[in-house]
Design a protein around this nucleic acid. Structure first.
Length: 271
DNA sequence: CTATGGACCTGAATGC
DNA sequence: TGCATTCAGGTCCATA
């Protein structure tokens, strides 16, 4: 479910409301991807200073350490004053003076873990090798092109790997490559500076637009405020195999790259 | 070092 | 209707 836009929309939906709250109690359900790293009972009494984001991780800055939250493939957060009893897939609750932050995650690929700071493990290990933020100033065309020059894998898989630029997931990778007119199978190091520039702009455009629209709704994404997103209706290629390209009407194609589906137009994306 | 396939887990959709 | 197979928005880890 969540790529960068969904995570950012989620962050915005509760960051202000939880800021300054004191943790009354934490509840861990079935195991997530990693153990919490600190007893849930030891979170009580800490204060949430603010909520940041790095890549697809949400960072709840506490007055003692930081709580990293990742939504995995199927996770979503809710934040409400009066949370009902936890359901089958509610695997983490942070009960605070200002409401309960709850992680619902059927597949449990998500994670909640405490780290003493961002400079030490586990945060250092998880965040240390992440690429640049695509919506930040550090994401500039020259550095992006240089990053791609060092990689021989297909451009689609380099985008997904997240060590050149973070936050581009399986939907937006296909969408950005379509916008830039680049074939997903093209080796990353074969992209000219001009084409890297086009891709750079396309990534920013597709992510910013998705954030504005409230995230993708491919399955049933909703922010912690319960509002669903509207990007789905705007996907140009993702999930549209066999349907006509919106630009040239050629039937769109679906292929497999690294066990993930890729969608593209064989006419508009020729190299 | 880079690149690739398997692993984690549940549920919905599809096929026989 | 029932049961098996495939697929799903992520990413770490072992292996080549």
């Amino acid at each position: 479910m969540p790529e960068l836009p969904e995570v950012e929309v989620t962050r915005r939906s509760f960051a202000q409301r939880i800021q300054g709250a004191r943790i009354l109690h934490a509840r861990a359900g079935l195991p997530l991807r990693w153990p919490l790293g600190r007893g849930a009972e030891q979170l009580a009494g800490l204060t949430v200073l603010r909520v940041d984001r790095r890549g697809k991780y949400l960072l709840l800055q506490l007055d003692d350490g930081v709580l990293l939250v990742h939504l995995g493939m199927s996770g979503s957060l809710s934040f409400r004053a009066d949370a009902p009893p936890p359901g089958r897939h509610d695997h983490f609750d942070l009960v605070t003076t200002q409401g309960t932050l709850r992680l619902n995650d059927p597949r449990r690929f998500g994670a909640v873990l405490w780290s003493a700071s961002l400079q030490v493990d586990p945060a250092r290990k998880l965040l240390g090798s992440l690429g640049v933020e695509p919506l930040g100033d550090a994401f500039d065309p020259a550095a992006f092109h240089a990053g791609l020059k060092a990689r021989r894998a297909p451009i689609k898989q380099v985008l997904l790997a997240g060590d050149v630029v973070v936050g581009v997931g399986n939907i937006y990778a296909s969408e950005a490559l379509f916008l830039a007119g680049i074939r997903p199978t093209t080796r990353a190091d074969r992209l000219s500076r001009a084409r890297a520039d086009r891709l750079h702009a396309a990534i920013r455009q597709v992510l910013m637009r998705a954030v504005e629209r409230g995230g993708s709704t491919l399955r049933n994404f909703s922010s912690a405020a319960g509002e669903s997103g509207h990007f789905q209706a705007e996907a140009a290629v993702y999930g549209r195999a066999g349907q006509p390209c919106l630009r040239c009407a050629t039937p769109l194609r679906q292929i497999r790259q690294g066990q993930r589906s890729t969608f593209f137009c064989p006419m508009c994306q020729r190299a």
